[in-house]
Design a protein around this nucleic acid. Sequence first.
DNA 1: AATGAATGAGGATTCATTCAT
DNA 2: GATGAATGAATCCTCATTCAT
Lengths: 191, 191, 191, 191
Amino acid sequence: MPKVGMEPIRRSALVEATIAEIGAKGSLDVTVGQIAKRAGMSSALAHHYFGGKDRIFLAAMQQILRDFGDEVVRALNAAQTPHARATALISSCFSPACFAPATISAWMTLYASAQTNPETLRLLRLYQARLQSNLIHALRPISTDPRGHAEMIAALIDGLYLRAALSHSKSATGARDMALKALDTLLEDAS
Amino acid sequence: MPKVGMEPIRRSALVEATIAEIGAKGSLDVTVGQIAKRAGMSSALAHHYFGGKDRIFLAAMQQILRDFGDEVVRALNAAQTPHARATALISSCFSPACFAPATISAWMTLYASAQTNPETLRLLRLYQARLQSNLIHALRPISTDPRGHAEMIAALIDGLYLRAALSHSKSATGARDMALKALDTLLEDAS
Amino acid sequence: MPKVGMEPIRRSALVEATIAEIGAKGSLDVTVGQIAKRAGMSSALAHHYFGGKDRIFLAAMQQILRDFGDEVVRALNAAQTPHARATALISSCFSPACFAPATISAWMTLYASAQTNPETLRLLRLYQARLQSNLIHALRPISTDPRGHAEMIAALIDGLYLRAALSHSKSATGARDMALKALDTLLEDAS
Amino acid sequence: MPKVGMEPIRRSALVEATIAEIGAKGSLDVTVGQIAKRAGMSSALAHHYFGGKDRIFLAAMQQILRDFGDEVVRALNAAQTPHARATALISSCFSPACFAPATISAWMTLYASAQTNPETLRLLRLYQARLQSNLIHALRPISTDPRGHAEMIAALIDGLYLRAALSHSKSATGARDMALKALDTLLEDAS
DNA sequence: AATGAATGAGGATTCATTCAT
DNA sequence: GATGAATGAATCCTCATTCAT
């Protein structure tokens, strides 16, 4: 058991535990003790590495957005045509990973938290900007109004996700299909 | 100052104070004591009238949705044509009242709370169902696919609201206009 | 509904409700509100008539002992011979009424309360003295040591009651029979 | 001052403080705060080690019965003959330790608590069963009806203790002597 | 006589955080 | 690096009691 280089291991263990705990509880009402226990360490150590509960939460939020970003990148890289890229972007927003209970809970609390925490707000804006940018880039060759269409698609994605996430029963596929259909409508409309 | 019949007065004072306090704090982390203080009474009395924190919160959520519902009804009654009705529905979702800090905070926490609290989920579903129903009714005479279009418009509204609410600077007008434009696009597309 | 002469009615209703509530809960952890509700009035009125929770409790205790005393008197009056009187005294200590849940709870809490409350202690001592006195009187014609035997029988009654009350399953009959047997042993022994 | 291995120290300190506090107050109306303060720690720590007020109380009750049990064992071991064993058993029930204010209070509250708390009832039954068993064992060689006599002696002990405990002034010696006299009466009677 | 209204005081419990080891 | 120990502050909730009507 090495005594050095534990920091990154401990930190990521805590971040992972935080996400898992939020998912399990379904809310942000999670104690440092619970997180630390799940991560297999004492709560004192969690404090030692992060300096406070807020910082642990912030790191967890960043991780969630980073995970999502990675998935988007993977999807984009696999697509060849502009339309395929747009489709890939939309689909990745409704991937099974996005509907894991933990992710849903985290995402919802992210919105709520953004009202209070400037850091969270910054994070959320960053994600929105990236998605927007990616969408514009994908739509530019095929849309008459890339910016406007991107904005609308992005908002629609958020709204559909919100509703799908709320109705646990309904599958995410329907939401995705509706977003894709909207994309086609927008594109056709212009031709 | 009458000493009887205080219950409804106290209850509504508490509900109002709860909404205001959530708005001021920007989160659900509000204590019964703070709410009671804002409502001008002891926390014991708050408990007396509601029986517990959860019940106070639930009542506040109901009030928020009821207020919104009332506004929708008013807007609907003022509209004469189907298209005007649809426009009124959409516009009322982006009314200034909906963007009061208190309302935004409450709405966000509503989403977050719905993950945990079945009662909140029920409330939220009820609101969504009503809006959907109203939209379908308004679109029926003018849309080729009232149900599908209503669903899409509803989701778009939620997404646009979410984004507008997040960017405090941006005005709500832009979001509303975009929703209205989407409505026209959908209707034209069918012609 | 007369507006006068309510005091004795209200008072006895409260006392009765107190005993019933203690019995139902199985402990002294009973609130004035619960008692008043059971008695069909507001807690404020309970205070008005008794002046405080302690006084309500004290009155309830007195009532329990009075009830028991009355039963003893009835039993004594029905007995003709000294031996029958002693038997009646013992039997009345194990009557069904003494094993009603409410009575058991009240009695136990009476002992506990006597440690703190001088008034309760005084009450309890009074009851013990009366029973003792009655026993001595009954035993005098038939015992060689009325005082000593009475003391022993009294203690045995308390002990047997305690144990019978604790074992909800066991019937009170066994306890009574054992006390009666002890009586006979004491009397025979002397002969 | 070691900073590890405090748990047993803290736990026993809390148990001791609980007994002392109950004794000082003369009732079960003791707060965790008072107990913790007497034990020299914060109430939060008390909760940390026991998990709740009930568990603290239960541990205290167990300790009282364990102390009593130890004393009985010591007394039994010192006795050589059956009669001496029986005498020792009875005497240990009236030892000075049993009449310490704290012990009396605890014992009384034990009876009261047994009405409500199944765990307390179980504890009390266990103690009774042990004393009974010890008595039967001691009486077997010298009594014609070990079981019946043991039951009566046990009940008599409880009753005499109750009465002696109630009359703070009277010495415990009288109660013990009366129990011993009863023992002899029972044994002689059979001869 | 009677009560709804109202509260202050207190109590169990939780939790983030600090510290000594 | 790691943790058990420890706590102060805060929170929800209860309850006896008072008061105006």
